[in-house]
Write a protein that binds this DNA or RNA. Structure first.
Lengths: 225, 225
DNA sequence: ACCTGAACACCGTTCAAGT
DNA sequence: ACCTGAACACCGTTCAAGT
């Protein structure tokens, strides 16, 4: 492994920047995974000394948030435009957010926790509900309900796909293979549905929850399609 | 700080156990937080050498999962019993799970990711849907949809409350205070709802999403109340 | 002013040594 | 067999030294 080898060719003055460092950090995660995101690895990627990063970021957390913000801007920049179908707008907005988390599964949890919302998507969602005829109070409440559902479900589902192989063996996910071996006496209902139960990573769970939620939102709307 | 001080009084043989170590680990987290959960801290709590834990757990991950399983058993043991109101059963089950995550917010994410389900709650949920008249395929699908929504929303919301103080300042949560200062020209809909928008940690978001989802589930049920 | 080198405190883990 | 002590590799961070 590459150590902090002394005597490296000195980098040119001002050849580093926040943008370069963030790009190197993303490359490290993409190639080696999030738990390999260290100052050492970023330094190797940049051919720079690990501690040179401290000139541009206060600490690792600040660098990490900058990386997350870069990814978010990439997914959302100029993404949504209103149509004359406010329900379709809500659904497309939900899928846009879901796709963003699934695109960067290693960051999904931290994105949901530390960048839980942004003005643009809230603005868009409230606008759609407003065109559905909702008053301000209901539109605000439903926008939050929808936003929290989408963000939570997407980030957890994405994170599930990013669990390291070594950890999966220790997890309950074996149940996907074994639940049919359960005693039908003590678990008659699971036995009853048999093979119909979707696996824990099956996207139909999320899609169904979104369908049911949107269905209620449409039913309550003064301006139904 | 207590170091690995040499010359500690030797612990009696077989005086350690998985149960004792797990209890000590929980005490450490409760008193000092999850990022202070180290072998050193657990050793201090037990008055034992940090590495003595390796005789009882393969590694830190195995200890951590054992701790999570202990907490889950505490919350769910003999928790739910069927009533003659299957819709109320679904709602109570959802609140039970939500309360479990909110009770242990520091563990919420890992509980949702590494112990995403258990037989008992799935069995109970399918049973309720079955009494609602659903066929096996629909009951299985809706049980998954409901389970994923509840688990995801509860774990993310709980984790939001457990973010360390030092990190919050760097987060977008400041928007709760500042979103009304947005330019009404570029964000007319946010300006329109004004103070009606619930904060990011407001429980009404989750409650509303659950209400809307359950409403649809009842509407589709062959046996409506 | 920006980058490098060395050092520090801390962490999980391994392994030989005690009893 | 179970607990202890010492050591190892690795990590984020600080700070003085180079240029």
């Amino acid at each position: 492994m590459a150590q902090t080898r002394t005597g490296r060719p000195r980098r040119a003055r001002d050849s580093l920047s926040r943008e370069l460092i963030v790009a190197a950090a993303e490359a490290v995660v993409q190639r080696q995974g999030l738990d390999r995101l260290t100052f050492q690895a970023i330094g190797d990627e940049l051919d720079a000394h690990p501690t040179s990063i401290y000139r541009h970021f206060r600490d690792k957390d600040e660098l990490f948030l900058a990386l997350i913000d870069t990814l978010r801007a990439r997914s959302y920049s100029g993404a949504m435009t209103e149509t004359d179908d406010w329900m379709a707008d809500l659904r497309n907005q939900a899928h846009l957010i879901h796709d963003h988390y699934m695109r960067y599964p290693e960051f999904a949890l931290q994105m949901a926790l530390r960048r839980p919302t942004d003005f643009m998507s809230v603005e868009f969602t409230i606008g759609a509900l407003r065109r559905g005829g909702y008053d301000a109070e209901s539109a605000a409440l439903y926008a939050r309900a929808l936003g929290q559902l989408v963000r939570s479900a997407a980030s957890i589902q994405a994170a599930l796909t990013a669990i390291p192989e070594e950890q999966r063996d220790a997890d309950d996910l074996t149940w996907e293979k074994d639940y049919r071996k359960l005693d039908p006496e003590s678990h008659p209902n699971i036995a009853w549905v048999g093979s119909h139960l979707p696996g824990i990573r099956d996207p139909r769970g999320w899609e169904t929850a979104l369908d049911l939620l949107l269905e209620s939102i449409e039913r309550h709307a003064p301006n139904r399609r």
